[in-house]
Amino acid sequence: MIPAPFDYVRPGSVEEACQALAADEDAKVLAGGQSLLPLLRLRLAYPSTLVDIGRLPELSGVHDRDDHVYIGAMTTHDDVLRSPVIHGACPLVALAAATVADPAVRHRGTFGGSLAHGDPAGDLPAVVLALDAVLVARSARGEREIPAAEFFADYLETALEPDEILAGVRIPKLGPGWGYHYEKFHRTAQAWAVVGVAAAVKRSDGGIEEARIGLTNMGATPVRARAAEAALRGAEAGDRVRAACEEAAADTSPPADLHAQPDYRRHLARVLTHRAVRTAAGWG
């Protein structure tokens, strides 16, 4: 199928991009286009203008900074999962990026694009949520930092204002002693996650000191499994960890769709959280 007509601008700087967005309330940002183009082709979206930010060098690249890793929004999934910096400092991001769609899509799709799209079934939103990342937005009004916990507002909606561009993401370095895993459950390799669990676990002697868990596709937004995190704090390996993970679906409102009903998603969240935590803790 074929998109409806739109205008196209390719700004030379982030400032220009912000101006273009501010000038037209029906304008939309074009990043890698891997979510947007299918929507346009199915005529499920009718932007007046696409503001192509895919070539702005300042929005691209992975930067190792003191206490965090900064990932430019236009860094492709492929570049993310090849980045030694990410593998070293925040491997959970790479683990999840490797599960996004398929190789060709990962060559075009961008880290920031999949966050700004705000799809709770996407793999990366749960990861930045679990890692307490900070999202950096730019507009003609300047720069603004948005904690991940405040970024995902509703289904396909984020805290970005219409004239704002997601410029990059700060992923805090958690330091030594942490293990990571992204457990994705899907029916076919290229299908969206029915449920996904992003887990970061800090081990103590024979148990868990701290765990952070983000859930994919367990609500209108990605969510943290706070109850499970609390129950895991100080839990020893074995039945206590299993019991703690039973809390994973607490306070979630998972969707009902073609691929699963809410009760099954809740069940999966519990099972997959246990698996993700065990693998992250190195007990897999």
């Binding site: 074009l30 183009l37 082709r41 060709a104 075009r108």
Partner: peptide, 10 residues
């Protein structure tokens, strides 16, 4: 890349 999901202008 999947050429159905890239605009010619891109």
């Amino acid at each position: 890349v999947k050429s159905c999901s890239v605009l010619a202008v891109q």
